[in-house]
Write a protein that binds this DNA or RNA. Sequence first.
DNA 1: CTTAAACGGTACCAGATTGGTCCGGATTGA
DNA 2: TCAATCCGGACCAATCTGGTACCGTTTAAG
Lengths: 151, 151
Amino acid sequence: MLRLSKLTDYAVVVLTTMARTDGALHTAASLTERTGLPAPTVQKLLKLLARGDILASHRGATGGYTLARPPCGITVAQIIEAIDGPIALTDCVDGQTGSCGVESLCARRGSWDKVNRAVRRALDDVTLADMAAPPLFFDAPAPERGTALAG
Amino acid sequence: MLRLSKLTDYAVVVLTTMARTDGALHTAASLTERTGLPAPTVQKLLKLLARGDILASHRGATGGYTLARPPCGITVAQIIEAIDGPIALTDCVDGQTGSCGVESLCARRGSWDKVNRAVRRALDDVTLADMAAPPLFFDAPAPERGTALAG
DNA sequence: CTTAAACGGTACCAGATTGGTCCGGATTGA
DNA sequence: TCAATCCGGACCAATCTGGTACCGTTTAAG
């Protein structure tokens, strides 16, 4: 797998919708309508994103949500962390010991850290602005000649 | 999360154990003893790794498993794919439509493809030789990659 | 001051997925 | 023949995710 949760996927849908009208105020209800996602799910998403400092919330009547930063300042890594928690491929992050019963396992723990960092960097490199960019067609002449495994 | 399965983690433990005696033949029983992991789990892992062309299996009495390639030729991406299946962060891979009920969702599908590829590249960049390398302290000057382990 | 609209937090449940186990069958060297 | 080993399923329990509901708090409008 190495799959991120469906919620994170939905979050990007909501965020790109908001990014199209950067700076505007959106209510949970309006975003529900515009995205077509189930209402309670959208509410949950917005709460999480607000906690993660990706959205700014405005309470009370005429309240709603706005992007906390311009889209180019919001990275995929931040979105994932807001929804799914810290990005860590393995259960026990480096440095910790004892959480996993097997001793020989933790010995190799530091090795994953390298992978973690590489993935992290890749995720930090893509912003919401990139995600909101035109969907560009896929049958266009592929500039890469790599094998592009069915990812 | 963006968490990979515990099985994959175990797989690395088993593989690094094998890598230390590159080329040698290992049985499921011996690897169980050396790693301390539960026996049925090790068996399952070895089967999966053999199917994924990461291990070569030898049947019959005096059979066992060997690494299909030198450690520097086995990437983390390959291991993950062998255990967890194809690396795809989102449910519907690019190009497909209709699998997810929500229409506005699939429209942004292509955006994830960029992220997918970035992560994939990061995972392709780390080999089993790297994982088997000494646990090295984190503030030490990192030596060049490509250890003598690979031969 | 009352009302209503909107966010905030928490608890809860069903379904899917993972981790772990077991058993019988096939292969091969002694 | 016999025993050691891999091979391929089926199977079950535990965990996690996705989705829902409820109630409290805040705040603008009338």
